[in-house]
Design a protein around this nucleic acid. Structure first.
Length: 443
RNA sequence: GUCCGAAUAGUGUAGAGGCCUAUCAUGGGGCCCUGUCGAGGCCCCGACCCGGGUUCGAAUCCCGGUUCGGGCGCCA
């Protein structure tokens, strides 16, 4: 028997007015069994939703009735039968079964409740992610995450960007800043890459003109917060013959597009989460770095001087200030001091202590950072040396700048932070299927 | 890394030295019930993180450990 016979429809695909006398098969998990004595309801759940299977004792085979009322929750079943329009049932129909096939029986008790009656802590849910995913809220988060990634790909491809993939195993820990995970690569030491940055720039020399990559990045920092992971997903772009303002425009328009697509394509998931999504207004406010630290200093909770990076507290101070002033949650901070940005950020010609760099912020945290990049090899070598890095380790990268490198700009956007700020999710682990943090390496 | 807090049935919780043979909900088992949709009713089952200490007596107080949560730091 072909397994295709186990399911003819998802629960949400049945139109009770049109189906007539045709037999249908639904397959999924036993969400609940409500045995009322003379009548028994089995709620079957699949990825899309739920359906009610109704068994009336007097009208149905006694053996089938007794089998149904003894089903163990979260077991996997396939049910074949006929559809009866019924306004009292979910989706406007109920399934009157001819047969119920038990495909895999669940053990009892379950590691956590899937119906929403009893909460479970994040740690408990992550330990049993396979069953946590059966909860409607968790299911909704990952359907939305899919829609976000799908919309990003659509937007960038339509804007002339080619999707690329760069290596995650790299030879040298050269970029500086963050710590890398060392690994063994045959008989050599290698590292997991912290960012596709250097590779996407090389692609600009290759004439690919506009590229993007959605992929994992690895940071070996021992950070321990609700917004950091050691393995995250980065949405990166790089584009030639454009400046930082051009790529900021791409970024804000993409954010707007993604919000709209989520609203249009997964409204049911938003409803499950109880979210009425508001689309950010473009263009986003642009604060200079100087204005940003002035805001922090005028609030008096901490004193920042020029050249300081923004603390977590100051990010919140600025975010709240912008929200009070504009009612918007997204904004840019531009014109950062060259010394606190990575070596590849292009300084302004007339004031080289400032760089053509930006961060895209949400009210609560940093979402993205980008810049126009240095495309002049001598300047790049000097900047690498200025930051205390060894230019020799950058040969594979620097060579690309000596044979025709166009001016270019780009950014990286944290996928998880984008999703969590969109949905108001407070812990980044909630928007990753199998998060990797300081402590968790399994599942 | 550091500061603060927490750890009780499968899950989520109550608990402030004797009231604990440990609360409630959910769940599981049994029985009743023909329209439930967090079904309802009755009965039953199931737990104090580990190791020391204080005390006549510890789930409760102290010390150490482990694990978890939150803040900060670290962090293209």
């Amino acid at each position: 028997m072909s397994l295709a016979n186990l399911r003819t429809h998802y629960t949400t695909q049945i139109d009770p007015g049109k189906i007539g006398d045709d037999k249908v098969a639904l397959a999924g998990w036993v969400h609940e069994v409500r045995d009322l004595g003379g009548i028994c309801f089995v709620v079957l759940r699949d990825r899309q939703g739920r359906a009610q299977i109704t068994l009336v004792k007097k009208k149905i085979d006694r053996e089938l009735f007794n089998f149904a009322r003894k089903l163990i929750r979260e077991s996997v079943i396939s049910v074949r039968g006929s559809i009866k329009p019924e306004e009292k049932a979910p989706n406007g129909y109920e399934l009157i079964p001819d047969e119920i096939e038990l495909l895999n029986e669940a053990e009892s008790p379950l590691p956590l409740d899937t119906t929403g009656k009893v909460d479970a802590e994040l740690d408990t849910r992550l330990d049993s992610r396979f069953i946590d995913l059966r909860r409607s809220r968790t299911n909704a988060i990952f359907r939305i995450r899919h829609e976000v990634l799908h919309a990003v790909r659509n937007y960038l491809a339509n804007d002339g960007f080619l999707e690329t993939s760069s290596p995650k195993v790299v030879a040298t820990a050269t970029e500086g800043g963050t710590a890398l995970f060392p690994i063994t690569y045959f008989d050599r030491e290698a590292f997991l890459n912290q960012s596709p940055q250097l590779f996407k720039q090389i692609l600009m020399s290759g004439g690919m003109d506009r590229v993007f990559e959605i992929g994992p990045i690895f940071r070996a920092e021992e950070h321990d917060t609700r917004r950091h992971l050691n393995e995250a997903t980065s949405i990166d772009i790089e584009a030639s013959f454009v400046d930082h303002f051009d790529v900021m425009e791409i970024l804000e328009n993409m954010v707007e597009y993604v919000y709209n697509q989520v609203i249009e394509n997964v409204p049911d998931a938003l409803e499950v989460m109880g979210i009425e999504l508001r689309v950010p207004k473009t263009p986003f406010l642009k604060l200079t770095y100087q204005e940003a630290i002035d805001i922090v200093n005028s609030h008096g909770e901490e004193e920042l001087k020029w050249g300081d990076d923004l603390s977590t507290l100051s990010e919140h101070t600025i975010g709240e200030h912008v929200f009070q002033e504009t009612g918007e949650e997204h904004y840019f901070i531009i014109d950062w001091p060259t010394e606190i940005k990575p070596f590849y950020a292009m300084p302004y010609e007339e004031k080289p202590e400032f760089s053509k760099s930006f961060d895209m912020m949400h009210r609560t945290m940093e979402l993205s950072s980008g810049a126009q990049r240095i495309h002049v090899p001598e300047m790049l070598k000097n900047r690498i040396a200025d930051q205390g890095l060894d230019p020799e380790g950058f040969d594979f990268y620097l060579r690309a700048f000596s044979y025709g490198m166009p001016p270019h700009s780009g950014w990286g956007l944290g996928c998880e932070r984008f999703v969590m700020t969109m949905l108001g999710v407070e812990n980044i682990r909630d928007v990753v299927l199998f998060p990797r943090d300081r402590r968790r390496l399994s599942p």
